[in-house]
């Protein structure tokens, strides 16, 4: 009896460790889109140039109607968006904290994100 309980506790601990590893090591593919979109009757216009940087890493620049893919591990990230005009002059810089769930593929529309006033934004996508 004692042995069975010990084995069951051990199995439970290993399962918990597995779940923890899953959460800790899950890599999300985040697609950042910079294109005009219509959402609930409102049109969000894309910027000419957007510089995207996660967690202080090197900036990736995308132009109008373009997209970039980022691979992020962990649930909380600092996002820095630098909006620029055609000549590359910075118009504004927006910094936000984004919280990702366990979704594997997440798609983000930058124009909509820029208009979002919240400091912390929760993002979700497709689980598999």
């Amino acid at each position: 009896m004692k042995r069975t309980v010990f084995i069951l506790i051990l199995i439970a601990l290993l399962v918990l460790l597995g779940v923890w590893m899953f959460v800790l090591g899950r890599q999300r593919t985040v697609v950042m889109r910079n294109e005009d979109i219509d959402r609930h009757g409102i049109t969000y216009e894309a910027a000419q140039i957007v510089g995207i940087s996660f967690d202080g890493a090197a900036e990736t620049e995308i132009t109008y109607d373009d997209a970039a893919i980022f691979y992020l591990v962990g649930s909380s990230h600092k996002l820095k968006l630098r909006v620029a005009d055609e000549d590359g002059n910075t118009l504004r810089v927006v910094e936000k904290t984004i919280k990702l769930d366990l979704s594997k593929n997440i798609s983000v529309d930058i124009p909509e994100l820029l208009e979002n006033k919240e400091e912390v934004i929760k993002l979700t996508g497709k689980m598999w």
């Binding site: 290993l14 460790l17 597995g18 923890w20 590893m21 899953f22 090591g25 899950r26 591990v73 594997k104």
Partner: peptide, 21 residues
């Protein structure tokens, strides 16, 4: 399995070991 679930880094290898056990 860990490749399918996109579990990377040391947690990925530990999870692979847990699955294999």
């Amino acid at each position: 399995f860990i490749t399918d679930w996109s579990i990377v880094g040391i947690p990925g290898l530990v999870l692979a070991m847990l699955i294999s056990t």
